[in-house]
Design a protein around this nucleic acid. Structure first.
Lengths: 355, 355
DNA sequence: TTGTACGCGTTATCAC
DNA sequence: GTGATAACGCGTACAA
């Protein structure tokens, strides 16, 4: 079968047929020996294994995939333009997910979903072309063009970070609302009465949740919405750092200056804190700052930045568990929403309100 | 063919045969109409396209791949534990590469290469199992187990960031040595005469190059190696931030204190700069700092951190071009080494030497 | 220009 | 326990 077997040097990939011939058995026996080792005589099995090793045999994934009608590739859909806060955590997420997947024999393919139709089409081709077996979505929207969507391809989907459970997509999220609420409550406890909220894209799930969390804390603390000023929130994508910079302008224009700032991503907080200090405000003397994400770099800001740390590794593992569960049909609807709590890390960017 | 065609609702994937039947042509004609539109009558072609659209037909990638003996997936091998400085730039690299690949009809699969044999085996199965068509390697070593390596699988490989051209792997790198040399020269020009170099893993390509660059600048400036102290350089992996923290200890223990610090990654510089200021040293008053990578966050450090910016997007594009060139055999050996220059970004962390 | 027939490498179904 | 054989969905000689 292998026409190059006599060349010896750069032999092209060994086939199952080559292994069978070398081991002196039928090709189907080789297949079994590799897939169901129990259902084949031990003696022949070892002979087959030896032959396979000698030839450096590796099963052809596409042939197998075609035959069994399944691939073993999972696709993760990343936001095309780095999502306003997520770029810091993407590597951790990918690594966590990939590690979990590999243990179960799956591969990870990545796709970027931006505003161009071409990228949506590409993703859908992956989904409908049988290339992928399941989807982890890390973006705020599902790709859809010509009425086709990954769900329509019959693919299991799990959403990470964004709660899409009301769209029927099992989601692994953190407790955005409670986490921000608790952080705000802590600020109130420290005597703060006026706040600046640096928003993510308006309407975005995270922004909705986090904004609500701030309001809940204000309400519980006996403060009205008037205590809250808002910056950012543009619909258009913007780099987190830029949002923070603009927030400095907004801040300095306010008649009554807030004493505490709640940023919805570390990037925003980092650029804001840097520029606001250049503008002559002391942190935390004049101004306390807390943000969301938990990037490692926050510890080394000046002053060290308080942040709400998202457990991205755990969330990655949970998303994989959910997805593989759906694939194996172990669970059909699963728990639709899995919440993994974030943790407030208090650092020196937060202090008592100026009296 | 499609047994579910009468269900209408959740129809399983339409096949080429379905399209052929609906268009009233033979299955092979459909195949041609999609692949070589020129070689089929316009009238029938439009009929076929209409049928395909109506059925939501998407070609099965595995069947095609099996038939043509090629996949259209590229694998990128990432360092399993975040490489000492690279974690900041991985998202940009992935996005740049993915974008370039999609335009040419390829997909991107990711693999992590850490110290465990399982991950090497996984990568090699991908390579030998026909799953991938080419490899972009972002790690300092090539996976190899049982004497198998991706090159042995006949796969085109391109290395990014690391120069592996002497191992026969076309590489896209930046001018580490010159960039560091120029930065060091600038420090010398500013009157600095003693330096601390915060090293990456000893023996690592980047560290070798960058260290050499420092020495070249010292030599050109009439300084001896005695002008240089070294911190870091552990063989074991360590988080960049930790290396910077340890460098603070090393620095304070030196009898003659350097007035300038050259860090081989932004992470190191960021944690070092933060802690050294807490220890009572002024930047750049007592100490100038420059680092390597060009993370956006450097601009918002206190003081803003000078850094050598690597053109990661360009490097990603170049790597893809090289790889696809090798796949298409347009170029056989290609230029073995492509250098894309980095750019020194001067910020306030650098100043004249204390007199 | 279009249709027929075969094969890509593997797994699953059946006999033996 | 093992072997022959028919698919999986598509591309491509070749014949019509």
């Amino acid at each position: 079968m292998n026409k190059n077997k006599d060349v010896g040097e750069e032999q092209s990939a060994a086939l199952m047929a080559d292994v069978a011939r070398l081991a002196g058995v039928a090709i189907s026996t080789v297949s079994r020996a590799l897939a169901n080792p129990g259902r084949v005589n031990e003696k022949t099995r070892t002979r087959i294994n030896a032959a396979a090793k000698q030839l450096g045999y590796t099963p052809n994934a596409m042939a197998r995939g075609l035959r069994v009608g399944k691939s073993n590739t999972i696709m993760i859909i990343l936001p095309g333009s780095p999502y306003y806060g997520a770029s810091q955590i993407i590597p951790q997420v990918l690594q966590s997910i990939n590690k979990s997947l590999i243990q179960e024999g799956y591969n990870l393919m990545i796709a970027n979903l931006d505003r161009e139709e071409a990228s949506e089409r590409h993703i859908l081709n992956l989904a409908f072309g049988g290339t992928v077996r399941g989807v982890i979505i890390f973006s705020s929207k599902l790709p859809e063009v010509d009425g086709r969507s990954p769900a329509g391809a019959g693919l299991p989907i799990v959403s990470m970070l964004f709660d899409m459970s009301n769209a029927g997509v099992p989601s692994v999220v953190t407790n955005d609302r409670e986490a921000i609420r608790d952080a705000t409550t802590e600020l109130i406890r420290l005597g703060h009465r006026r706040f600046l909220y640096i928003a993510g894209p308006r309407g975005n799930y995270h922004d909705v949740e986090r904004y609500a969390g701030v309001l809940e804390a204000l309400g519980a603390g006996g403060l009205s919405e008037d205590a809250l000023s808002i910056s950012g929130g543009d619909l258009e994508y913007q780099h987190g750092f830029e949002t923070g910079i603009r927030a400095v302008d907004d801040f300095t224009k306010l008649d009554v200056r807030p004493t505490a700032v709640i940023a919805t991503s570390d990037d925003m907080a980092i650029s804001f804190m840097s520029r606001i200090q250049h503008a002559g405000f002391a942190v935390p003397g004049d101004l306390s700052i807390v943000s969301f994400d938990g990037s490692p770099v926050c510890e080394f800001c000046s002053p060290p930045l308080s942040t709400i740390k998202q457990p991205v590794e755990e969330m990655g593992r949970a998303a994989v568990d959910l997805l593989l569960g759906a694939i194996d049909q172990r669970q059909e609807a699963a728990k639709v929403r899995t919440v993994i709590p974030s943790k407030l890390i208090l650092r020196e960017s937060i202090g008592s309100a100026k009296s």
